[in-house]
Design a protein around this nucleic acid. Sequence first.
DNA 1: TAAGCCGAACTTTTT
DNA 2: GTTCGGCTTA
Length: 647
Amino acid sequence: MDISTLNSAQREAVTAPLEHILLLAGAGSGKTKCLTHRIAWLLKTEQTYPHNILAVTFTNKAANEMRSRIDALLKKPAKGLWAGTFHSIAHRLLRIHWKDANLPQAFQILDSQDQLRILKQVVKSLNIDKETLSPKRAQHFINACKDEALRAKDIVIEVEEKFLKAKMLEIYSAYEETCQRTGVVDFAELLLRSYELLRDHPPLLEYYQQRFRHIHVDEFQDTNTIQYKNLQLLAGKQGKMFVVFDDDQSIYAWRGAKLENIQQIQQDFSETRLMRLEQNYRSTGIILEAANALIANNKGRLGKKLWTQDKAGEPVNLYTAYSEIDEAQFVAEKIQAWQGKRVEIAILYRTTAQSRQFEEALLLKGMPYRIYGGQRFYERLEIKNMLAYLRLLVHRDDDSAFERVINTPKRGIGNRTVDILRSLARQQGNSMWQAACAVLETKQLKARAANSLTTFLNLIEQLTAQLKDLPLHEKVEQIKIVTGFIAHYKKESKQEAEKRLENLEELVTAARQFEQLNKNKSNLLTAFLDHAALEAGERQSSQFDDCVQLMTLHAAKGLEFKVVFICGLEEGLFPHQNSLDESKLEEERRLCYVGITRARQYLYLCHSKSRYRYGMRDRCIPSRFIQEVPLELIQDVRLKSAMAPSL
DNA sequence: TAAGCCGAACTTTTT
DNA sequence: GTTCGGCTTA
């Protein structure tokens, strides 16, 4: 086991005795390196088997990265080692122990879009005015409850806000009932279910506690309550935690992440040891100084100062644009002038909507780019429709899939009929599929509707029988043809239709690839659907290797680039409008800190004097974050070609 | 039942 | 400026 590439602090952490280790690791201090070396170290020297190791991350990207780095260190795949996101690990447990978790074997995963669709129906059916309580708000409430490990029945209503809270609880209960009845599980539910599964089945829990003697968590500052509870159960009395975190990079409080978990773990686990990594190997002295100065404005930090042996490097560049178009043009021209590889450049922004200007500017110059985030492949309408058919093949009771395609493409089944099926299903406590079968026995429907419905049910039955033994990509191909999607999308405007048809074709390709990567998997279709729900896929497959990287600041965490542009540094955009009060502001500042510390050599901060928002041109004030970077570190830049257009 | 028109709401970040 | 949902009409 080679530890010669580690510095002394890293080496100390990697070879630490078997206690609970909390590693406070600053940006660019080599935390992933530490984590992977620690795992390799355990396997080599502590008579540990891959089987005994659990490694948890937050994104699929990070999980894949960790896996391949461990494999590289060991020079062979670490078979039996579990590495994945919290959600994928919870999901894995539920698939194995579906019976104990009280789920149907073919349960399906609900993304936030589908969750909202269901909630709209629930709100409607409870006759709640959506002016007083929007489905979106109910969605937030429910997810927040689940993140706190609370079921509807666990929640007590306090005197104040009684009415609204009672309504929300009513929705929560009805939603729970609908999900259970139709065998679907949302993201937060994956974590809550797996927690309950372990908690309520002692023999099962004991097995996993015996198994996972070593639990590793990356980005621990971003864990929420239910994630923490899962970890706590799995660790039990014997499991050893190795937890890496950076309080200054906590950027997910909005989805329930609890920085306090760092204190909590010190209370709950005896004999924890806190270690630090503060030497930065990524950025120049000036970039680090800028980052340190900015983050010093936050209160209540654990306190940490990054340092480097590197030289000071170039000053931070500041560009003041006249409009968002000018801003994008400036960035594109700078990139055009860049001599190195384009993959070394990242354009970072606060909101996904900002990406469009950069796309246009880069397109104009013929610069290849790649966008991360935004609408993803498996979230596109045409893809979701196709997947809904696939879901019905394996799980008839999946109402959200059923509703999505019962009349897509149009086959003469209107809202009227769908409404009948929906209320029938609820009354009888079964799914819409079952309700549809039952209602055809009676004479409740008009002949025309009944005919159309029969056609639809037969279509699904036929497909199931016909496609049973075909390989996965053939199934996708057949559905594309038989359901009439091709004709359906050809009716749309030409450009739109072309895109959609291309995407359908890409789904076939994706299925084929998935097949090849998972040859030994038994239930390929189910696995493919899970993959689609949990890993949503990138927005576009890149045709070029050397692309400029475009992403939100959130998506940039954990990555590094030689050149970084942080754009739209304006009050109301970054920090964002909804985050201007004190508590949320610190998280925005941390987000900015994350952005700055992504840069290795060159950092550009951009802001614009005006910007289109809500169809209006707004005047913009430079972000306070710009002023928080010491003036002596900054140099103003101008671009001749972008001088004063008439605005 | 389907298509087309009009007004409202919308843009935070992800699994 | 766009998208989504509700309402009206054929």
